[in-house]
């Protein structure tokens, strides 16, 4: 497998507190959707935060495109091509949709290129085009999530990491989020997804990773993860994959 991102046995936690991750590993292939599942407190969000530089990695290493990311700041990791959308969507509520998109391209030096990219994104997401001058904080949860995901595309990243994009959204809207995710993947963007709705997350992914108590228990093709009876019993509520 030609990995784009390799996480090797990392230990990480918040501040001086206990380690949340202790021996987590992960292999990310280019252009595919990877779904991390596991119970609450397994360390799924912590893993994404460690990769994007928000948390200090105490042991182990994260290598992206052959480059070690340990010790780098989030802005430096973003410049390498890794975008992260946290659970709270990380929007600027008092900025308009257009201004939020402009912030999405903050690291781009070419102003004209940035404005062109914003226009392209607005063209692809009609709901954002309609609300381009509206403050992000006044939009619905689904619209905010669409904006957060669309904003990552401004810089054409190599990897987009999404932390529970379906959180708090209506079922119909959730499917729209997965459709956007698939569209990203079809365009060659690698997606690393943390999803509480494990069944839905795995069904929309190529690769599955099972995390528990800060360790990686299993990783493999999403179909294999879905079909594994132990994983079905422990993490999928006993539901058999359709």
């Amino acid at each position: 497998m030609s990995e784009l991102l390799q996480v090797t046995n990392i230990t990480a936690g918040y501040g001086d507190g206990p380690a949340i991750l202790d021996g987590a590993h992960l292999t990310v292939e280019p252009g595919k959707v990877h779904c991390i599942i596991g119970p609450n407190g397994a360390g799924k969000s912590t893993l994404l935060k460690s990769i994007c530089g928000m948390l200090t990695i105490r042991k182990g290493e994260v290598v992206f495109n052959g480059k070690r990311l340990n010790g780098m700041r989030p802005d430096q990791i973003l410049r390498e091509g890794i975008c992260f959308v946290p659970q709270e969507r990380a929007l600027f509520p008092k900025m308009t949709v257009r201004e939020n998109l402009r912030m999405g391209g903050f690291i781009l030096d070419d102003h004209k290129k940035l404005e062109r990219r914003i226009d392209e994104i607005l063209e692809r997401f009609p709901i954002l085009r309609e609300r381009a001058e509206q403050h992000a904080g006044t939009m619905s949860g689904g619209q905010q999530q669409t904006l957060a995901m669309a904003r990552t595309l401004i810089i054409k990243p190599a990897i987009v990491m999404l932390d529970e994009p379906s959180l708090g959204l209506a079922p119909k809207v959730i499917q729209e989020m997965f459709d956007i995710m698939k569209m990203m993947s079809a365009e060659g963007v690698t997606v690393l997804l943390v999803e509480q709705n494990a069944l839905m997350g795995l069904k929309n992914s190529d690769w599955g990773v099972v995390l528990d108590l800060g360790r990686t228990l299993f990783e493999g093709p999403a179909g294999d993860v879905l079909a594994d009876p132990r994983i079905q019993e422990l993490y999928l509520g006993g539901n058999k994959a359709a």
Binding site: C52, M54, R73, P74, D75, L78, R79, C83, F84, P86, A90, L91, F92, M103, G104, F106, I107, R151
Partner: peptide
């Protein structure tokens, strides 16, 4: 936090 994640 969001600003930091966007490269600020």
């Amino acid at each position: 936090e969001a600003a930091e994640l966007l490269g600020v």
